Amino acid sequence: MRPSPAEIVRTLVAGRLTGLVHLACWPGLHQVRHVTDPDGRVLLLVPVVSDLAAALRAAGDDRPLAVVLDVLDLPPAAGAPSLGRALVSGWVRQLDGDEARAAALDFAAVEPTGDLLDVGTRFRLFRFEVAEARWDRAGVLRRVDPEAYAEAEPDPLHPVEAVLLADLADHHADRMAGYLRQRLGLAAGPAEEAPRVERLDRYGMVVSFGRPGARQRARLPFGRPLAGHDELARLLYSLLYPRTSN
């Protein structure tokens, strides 16, 4: 079991990673604060005084404006594999009144920034439904069906993945290495060859093992999708401390 392309794209554009916006027929890329609402629609929080706001005003005065949001994964540790890059596009419009207030609540559910209190004065909220979604990994570009994207859910572990991996490395490294050796059928070896977890998601973990400079990777599934951090903690405790978890 592993995340589908639609789930990976939803995870990448959820709002935890830096996004860049390209406006159709308008030069340049603009860094933007963004999230996705429960339906997968993209919300952009744009300062009124900014290059992006000026470009949106200039390009969108008299016609619908096509935009592309470009989000690159940031691996949780050096050497860990990347989830790749997500590109989603649609027709953007500014939100006002009740729509802006409802969208601000959706934004706050992902990123509770105080700047949302200034929507309508110092900031504007824009939104677009995803009409096209693509996933780029290792130079292979895949199209994702927009309906599949809308129905998918962001991975609940992605926002805390780096913290979870650091905790495993700092406090449970020996037990995790022993468990992974057993799971992978590896004999005991030098510490530098010990298997370690490089990525975590709701479906499983990506593990590296072998000699430095020639390490290999394997994916180990959990057996069922996890609902979040608490469920992962219980599962890992039962795996690493089986005698005390009964």
Rank of each mutant, 00 (worst) to 15 (best):
D96F: 01
G139P: 04
H172F: 08
R142E: 12
E153N: 01
A131V: 02
E161D: 01
D115M: 04
Y149D: 06
A188I: 11
P112V: 08
G204N: 07
G204E: 01
L184M: 14
R101F: 06
L116Y: 12
L168K: 00
L168P: 01
R202M: 08
F128V: 11
L157T: 07
L105K: 10
A169R: 13
R175I: 02
D201N: 15
V130Y: 09
L184A: 13
A162H: 03
Q182I: 08
G213V: 02
R175M: 08
A131I: 00
R101T: 07
A169V: 02
A194D: 15
V130D: 09
L168E: 09
Q182T: 15
G97E: 04
R137F: 02
L200F: 13
R175E: 14
F107S: 13
V110T: 15
L180A: 14
A191T: 12
L157V: 04
P159T: 07
P154Q: 05
D174F: 08
G120L: 06
T121S: 14
R124L: 10
L117E: 12
A187I: 05
L186H: 10
R134H: 12
Y179I: 08
G178D: 15
Y203M: 05
D155G: 05
L95H: 05
H171G: 05
V206K: 04
D170L: 10
F123N: 10
Y149M: 05
P190R: 15
A194Y: 09
R137K: 11
G97Y: 02
A100H: 06
R181K: 15
A173T: 07
G97Q: 00
A138H: 07
P159C: 02
V163N: 03
L95W: 03
D170M: 03
P146S: 01
V163P: 00
L200E: 11
G178Q: 14
F209Q: 01
L117K: 09
F128D: 14
P159F: 02
F107I: 09
L180H: 14
